[in-house]
Amino acid sequence: MKVSIITATFNSKSTIESCIQSVVKQTYQSIEYIIIDGNSSDTTLDIVKQYQLNYPHVTFKIISEPDNGIYEALNKGIAKATGAIIGFVHSDDVLASKTILSEIAYAFQNKDMDGLFGDLQYVSQSNANQVIRYWKSQSFQPKLLKEGWMPAHPTLFLKREIYEKYGNFDTSYKIAADYDFMLRILKEETLKFTYMPQVITNMRVGGMSNRSIKNIFQKTKEDYRAVTSNKVGGLLSVLRKNTSKIKQFIYK
């Protein structure tokens, strides 16, 4: 079972190496690694191409061209993916262990499911071993959507046909297209999702959605649009979604 991993990059020289290492050093062998670069002007591509040479057992697909943001880049990656399973490792993130893709592939092979998600750790920008927040997820129940619950998107792995049937990221969203997409599929009663109770991804703090007050306001507006357009909640759902993150600073 081939697993396609997609990474979107743009001038990511400070973090891309640790990101790539977490993918190419997996114990799982059938990996297709798709890197969509937004025409970086730094040494990001040089680093990527060096790893392509050093790890020939991993199938690299590299595209570097201007784009209109991360969601367009991720959509390009999905279009290029040929694996049975698709997951994302953003350029600031790392997979939590060398065996995690083997464990994910095993779960897909042995369980009747369309998608899998797990826990996520937010770590310091300067020290990836320093945990800032712990996103502890839980088994999925449809009623949770109205309560503002969502899995951590970087931990979500899906069968490729889910994207073929339900579409990609809506690029009219600038910050919350991942939330909109997850609501789109999670509300479908015919789909089956499994919770893996362990850390799948370590994410460096400082993401776009929380980078400024303006971005937080923009994300709140987009979250409200997502829950209402998908008919899974309203303003109370968005408020619960935001306040539920407080416990992530306590549980470590």
Results as ranks from 00 to 15, higher is better:
T99C: 06
A107M: 15
E103T: 06
M113K: 11
I104A: 02
E103M: 04
I100K: 01
D92L: 12
S97E: 07
A105W: 05
M113P: 10
S102W: 01
F117K: 06
T99K: 08
Q109K: 15
A105H: 06
I100Q: 01
F88R: 13
V94E: 11
L116N: 04
Q109F: 10
G115V: 05
I104G: 00
L116G: 04
S102N: 08
A107G: 14
Q109I: 09
K98Q: 11
F88G: 11
I104H: 01
D114R: 10
A96H: 08
D93W: 02
Y106E: 14
K111V: 14
L101M: 01
F117Q: 06
K111L: 15
I100C: 00
L95F: 02
Q109D: 15
S102K: 06
Q109V: 08
I104M: 02
E103K: 09
V94H: 06
A96M: 03
T99Q: 08
A107W: 12
F88P: 10
L95R: 01
V89F: 04
T99A: 09
I100G: 00
S97L: 03
D92M: 13
D92S: 14
G115H: 07
L101S: 01
L116C: 04
L116W: 05
M113R: 09
E103Y: 03
A105T: 09
N110F: 09
N110P: 08
K98L: 10
H90F: 15
N110I: 07
V94R: 09
I100D: 01
I104D: 01
Q109C: 13
D92W: 10
G115A: 08
L116R: 05
K111T: 15
L116D: 04
K98S: 14
F108P: 04
V89T: 07
F88A: 12
A96D: 02
D112K: 10
K98C: 11
F108S: 03
S97D: 05
Y106C: 12
K98I: 09
L116S: 05
L101G: 00
V89G: 04
Y106F: 15
Y106N: 14
K111S: 13
L101I: 01
F88S: 13
D112T: 13
F117L: 04
N110C: 08
F117C: 07
L116I: 10
A107S: 15
I100P: 00
N110L: 10
A96S: 07
N110Q: 09
F117D: 02
H90L: 15
V89S: 05
M113N: 11
K98T: 12
K111Q: 15
L101N: 00
F117H: 08
D93S: 07
F108N: 03
A105M: 08
A107F: 13
V94Q: 11
D93P: 06
L101R: 00
F88W: 11
K98H: 12
V94G: 06
F88T: 12
F117P: 03
V89A: 06
S91M: 07
